[in-house]
Design a protein around this nucleic acid. Sequence first.
DNA 1: CTATGGCACGGATT
DNA 2: AATCCGTGCCATAG
Length: 475
Amino acid sequence: MFVGHQHDLRPQATAHLATTMSFLQLSTAELEAQLQQTLDKNPALELVDELRCPQCGKRLARYPCPRCAAPQDNDGLVVCLSQRTTFQSEPRDDDEQDFARDLRAPDRLDEYILQQIGPALTFAERPIAAYILARLDEHGLLPETASEIAAYTRARLVEVERVLSLIQHADPPGVGAHTPQASLLIQLDCLAENAAPATRPTLALARLIVEKHFETLGRHDLTRIARQLHVACSSVEAAADFIQRNLTPYPTLAFWGEGKLINPGNEDALTPDITISFLNRAEQGGSLLVEVFTPFSGWLRVSPELKAALHDCASEERERWSQAVMEAALVTKCLQQRNHTMRRLMRLIATEQRAFILGGDGDLHPLTRARVARELAVHESTISRAVAGKSAALPDGRIVPLSKFFDRSLSVRDRVRLLVEAETRPLTDDQISDCLAQQGLQVARRTVAKYRKMLGILPANIRARRHHRSITFIQ
DNA sequence: CTATGGCACGGATT
DNA sequence: AATCCGTGCCATAG
């Protein structure tokens, strides 16, 4: 979602401003499209593999030429498109969070599922599957009904239902269900296929409870269920415990483990605009290499030939070409600006959030765009634009949107997650709040509740025991 | 009475 | 100026 390229020729001042701004907020892919378009249309702008100094003729790795006096008149007409910024970040004295973090599981849920069901799909069913997967919410549930999907994809209901069934029975079982209840039922069915005979009765009872007494189960009124089903209370308890232990109302959580949510609408997490890696093998403690991706490699410049030829041509032509040259100069200048800003921004982020880059969510320091803007002496909106819609690949393979570096509460959320993971008996929101206070974090009870919800953790009275990270086979 | 979730307000952030 | 976020208050369920 970017502002369309202006085909008309505006007064320079506005055009400059507009281009600088819009370039900055473009992701690499979007920038590539824009640039390609401009390259095709504007003969004054050219892309060259290597650049030679107009004075000494030497091949340049930097512009302007470090040896010769910089050609002042050409200033701003050339931009290098291979960006590499390296720097040392301060060695840290305190913590020793140097243990290896486990590497990430597969990245995208929709791809993962598509991989599984792909072979079973007919050609016509593929778009339906793609649509459904795109519409999953962050818990892996499907807000729309099958008939709505059918209407939207102009497919027959039976086809949609078939695809839906495939998705629901693919690996994180229960994905694509309409409600948590439906999801649980599907998960139970999947479990039933491999169930050992001994667990069959429990399984059957669990299914019955979920199907007919879901509401009551939610209130944890087990005795009532037992009474209505004419079953022993202990059996109901066993079934409830089984459900608690092996199922999750949020299928993706089971799959992604501890609270790593994916955002299906956010495809820019796939193609990072920036990579951060270790400069040498010296792993921790060394410097970080930050690399800002650019659409093309090489140099972008205003064609010197065309510029020279400007003088001797008809005045009518000259008008148009001079416009073209100016636009080309503008584009390169803006690109320089963009690169400069991105480089400075990333340097700051990488030093400031070194702990987070090396470690995990809990190590994120609070950082605001406003502060970055102040330190870099640019306007706040500049930082906003620079951050918007871009993502960075971290040394350990995580791909995070740049906005994550500015998440105010990520580290606290992580603390909450750890607390709940380590709990022996369910902690109430108030207790969690107290624990946090002991760690020096003053967080209101109400806020803990919000974080809990964000993490997909059920309220204390519902989660009797720790929940498992994935559905395991029963023996 | 306790634990939560909903609504909404104020201040910070973008 | 618009939006986001933490939080307090209140209703509700157990």
